Amino acid sequence: MSSDPSAVERLPPPPDRAPDLDERFTGALSAERWVAHYLPHWTTPERSEARYRITPEGLELRIDEDQLDWRPEDAPLRVSNLQTGTFSGPLGSASGTHRHRDDVRVRTETPLRLLFAPSSGRVDLTVSATRDDGCMLAAWLVGTEHLSPEDSGEICVFEIDADAVAGSTVARTGVKAHHDPRMHTDMAEVTLPLDASRAHTWTVTWGSGETVIGCEGRVVRRIGQAPDYPLFLMIDLFEIGPPRGAYPKAAMIHRVQGWSFDE
C-alpha cells in the first residue's frame, strides 16, 4: 500500500443490496452458515473441531493447550477454523475439498453442503490478527471440487503471521493454482500501515477473470485471473510448530459479509 495519497486506488463500495451472508457472531454459531471444523474429511472430528468462544466483539478463534494436531501426518499443526460448506468423496478416496497433499485420503465422509459457495462475488472480513507465538490468521476462498477435481484454485485473501504484526503489518495475499491447470500461482507480500492485531477490514472481489484484494478500503492487489467455480470461505487460526508459550492463543473475527454475483 502506497503512502502517497495520490497513488491510492480505492475499493468500490459494496453492492447496494443486503448481503447473502452477514454474520456478526451474536448468540450461538449458526449451523446454517458455518461449519466449525477444518477440512473435516481429511481427518477425524476430534482433530478438526474448532475451539472458539462468542464474545461481545465477535467470535474468538482459539488454540487451546490440550488441542490435538489436525492430522498426525501434518504435525505439529493445530487449527481452529470456520468454513462455509463441506464436500468429500467416499471413505478412503482422494476426493474432497482442498487436497493439500497427494497422499490424503478421506477419513470422515462428509456430505455436500453449499452454505455459501459463490463462483464470483465479494467478501468483506473484519478481523483482529493474533500476536501469539507461532500462530497465523488466514482467510481463503477455496474451490469446492464437488464438480471437478480441477476446480481447486484458491484466493488467499490474507495470511498474517503473528511475528509480522507490529506498527505496520506484513501479509501474504494472492491466488494459488493448486490442482487447477487453468490458473497459475501468484502470491506476494504486502506491507500494511496498520497494527493488524486491531480490528481492520479486508475485501476481496472476484469474477470475469480478475481478483481484487484490498484492506481498509484500499486496493492492495489486482490479479488478472480468478476461479470461476464454487468457492468455500475459510477463516482459520493456525499454530504451526510444537506447543510453546501461553494458552489460549486467539484471534478475533468481528464481522463477515458476503455477496454472490452468480446469476
Rank of each mutant, 00 (worst) to 15 (best):
Q225C: 01
P72V: 05
E239Q: 15
D236F: 06
Q83T: 01
F261K: 04
Q67R: 00
V157N: 01
F261P: 02
P230T: 11
I160K: 00
T26F: 04
A117P: 03
W259A: 04
R51I: 04
V170S: 09
A188H: 04
T173R: 07
S6V: 09
M136H: 07
R47K: 13
L114V: 09
A177K: 12
E46C: 06
I235A: 02
A75R: 11
M234H: 02
P230A: 13
V127P: 02
T191K: 13
R101E: 12
Y229F: 15
P230N: 07
T205C: 01
I63S: 04
P15F: 12
L233Q: 02
E150P: 01
P13K: 08
G258H: 01
D228V: 08
G96N: 01
P14H: 05
R244I: 00
V127M: 12
P13E: 10
G92D: 05
D195Y: 07
H100R: 12
E109S: 04
H184L: 10
P12A: 07
L237W: 03
D228L: 03
E46W: 03
T86V: 01
F25M: 09
F158R: 08
E65Q: 13
E210N: 09
T108P: 05
I253V: 15
R78V: 00
G224W: 12
M187C: 02
W202Q: 00
S88R: 02
A7D: 11
S3D: 15
R221M: 02
S119P: 02
R24I: 10
E32M: 08
E46F: 03
P56R: 06
I63Y: 10
G96Q: 00
A246P: 01
L137W: 07
M252D: 04
G209S: 10
A28F: 12
I235R: 00
A188T: 13
L91S: 11
D163F: 12
M183V: 07
G224Y: 11
L39M: 05
R244H: 14
D4L: 06
G58L: 05
S119K: 09
E239S: 11
T191L: 11
H100Q: 13
E57F: 08
P76C: 03
R47F: 06
L82V: 06
L194S: 07
R105M: 04
G58A: 07
L114Q: 14
G27D: 12
